Simulated scan of single mutants.
Amino acid sequence: MNFFYASLIAFAVTFLTMPVLIKVLKRKKLGDAPGGRKIHKQFIPSMGGIAIFAAVAVSLAIWAWQFPLPDIRYLLGAIALMFFVGFRDDMVELKASHKLLGQLVAVLLVVVVSDIRIKDLHGFLGIGELHFIISYTFSAFVILALTNAFNLIDGLDGLAGTIASIIFSCLGTWFVFQGLESYALISFTFLGGIIAFLFFNWHPAKIFMGDTGSLTLGFTMGALVIAFMENNAALPDGAFLKFEPTFTAGIALMLFPLYDMARVFTRRIRRGQGPMTPDKSHVHHFLMRMGLKHDRVAVLLGALQLAFIGLVLLMKDVSDHIALPVISVLVLALGFRLDQISVKYVKKKVHKEPRVLSQRKKKSSKKKIEVDREGLKESRINLN
């Protein structure tokens, strides 16, 4: 019940502070102006992550003393550091190298100091326990990838919040059942803040979460997913909600952000561009070209994310060597089908529209001037 109260407090603080934050940000002109790749048509304040982070801090200050803090205090410090990296980037854009450096410091706090890392692949691809250097490196890479993958999907009203609420609710529920109360507390406090944020971010959005929110949420989810994987693997055989395909279960929790990032990076590299070059090749852009609105895209992608988590739940007793190929084939098939449908829809739409040259054709032609010849004969004008 304490987790419900913690989530409720985070919800209330976010819900009450968000209108004030929106007014302040509008007054200070801190937000996203329309134009370029922006989908919105008017100025929208950003940095909604401030309210979420403040709500989580308040809720944790009230409830965290009841749970064992030593195992999460460095994680909380890393989350706070990532929040300030995002906050600094929203206020004054950071260089890519400086931004990555700040993220690396936060990652090191989690991987090295908190020891939240992938220590063993448990036979996946024939790999068992990892050398500690490989473990640190691979875990840092995974958290950075998950953090920035989530950051990349924050381009549509309600989408990032919907995906985050699904992930945090799944993680929090699993941690509760396994008695990992401190991790459950973090999950549910963030969940409460995100649900309240969605009231203001749902289409038409009144505020965006910005890097302040997306980096903080992505980093927190990345760290908790690794904690889930390691604690799940340590459960005895036959334990309740133990997933045999540990690696696949971790991927499924962040499946949509990971797929979207891989898809976008692949398309950009094929075009000879850098993987971080901004464009409109995200999944939500394709769905919107098909005529779907913001809210429908968010619900559809959230439902797909939840469906794949449910599929892994059904396959929880099979190995990664079976579960991962099944998930991969389904995801790639859906992605391929999406490309086919979206291209077909765009071609059909273009075909129906009038041609550009016909639009430019002058509708008005020279009118013939009718002359009253009989009248001219009787006039006094000299026609010689």
Results as ranks from 00 to 15, higher is better:
39 I>D: 12
100 L>P: 00
21 L>I: 12
146 L>T: 05
98 H>K: 13
263 R>G: 07
365 S>Y: 13
326 V>E: 05
272 G>A: 05
362 K>W: 13
278 P>C: 01
106 A>C: 05
231 N>C: 08
160 A>L: 04
84 F>M: 09
147 T>N: 07
343 V>S: 15
264 V>F: 05
255 L>A: 06
297 V>P: 05
374 E>I: 12
242 K>V: 00
199 F>C: 11
46 S>G: 10
163 I>V: 09
60 L>W: 04
282 H>R: 05
217 L>S: 09
184 A>G: 03
38 K>E: 14
196 A>F: 07
160 A>Q: 02
263 R>P: 06
111 V>G: 01
324 L>P: 00
227 A>E: 10
83 F>W: 03
275 P>R: 02
213 G>M: 08
74 Y>S: 09
68 P>K: 04
336 F>N: 12
255 L>E: 00
88 R>W: 12
272 G>H: 06
162 T>H: 07
171 L>M: 02
83 F>Y: 07
151 N>R: 04
37 R>C: 11
381 I>L: 15
315 M>W: 06
248 T>Y: 00
1 M>T: 14
198 L>R: 05
210 G>N: 10
163 I>D: 01
207 I>K: 11
131 H>G: 13
216 T>V: 12
130 L>V: 03
323 A>L: 01
204 P>K: 11
198 L>C: 09
245 P>K: 05
213 G>R: 06
47 M>I: 08
295 D>K: 15
148 N>I: 01
34 P>Y: 11
125 L>Y: 09
41 K>E: 15
316 K>A: 10
258 L>R: 00
271 R>H: 13
360 R>I: 13
129 E>N: 13
163 I>M: 06
12 A>C: 14
116 I>L: 07
355 R>H: 14
217 L>G: 06
300 L>Y: 09
16 L>D: 09
151 N>K: 04
272 G>R: 04
298 A>N: 05
69 L>Y: 03
354 P>N: 12
184 A>H: 03
178 Q>Y: 04
100 L>Y: 01
325 P>R: 08
231 N>M: 11
246 T>Q: 12
362 K>N: 15
87 F>R: 06
182 S>G: 01
215 L>V: 07
212 T>D: 11
211 D>L: 11
129 E>V: 15
251 I>L: 12
183 Y>I: 01
348 K>Y: 11
234 A>L: 10
36 G>A: 13
85 V>Q: 06
1 M>Y: 13
332 L>D: 02
31 G>C: 10
356 V>A: 14
155 G>F: 13
119 K>W: 09
193 G>V: 07
329 V>T: 07
55 A>M: 02
127 I>P: 00
361 K>G: 14
131 H>Y: 14
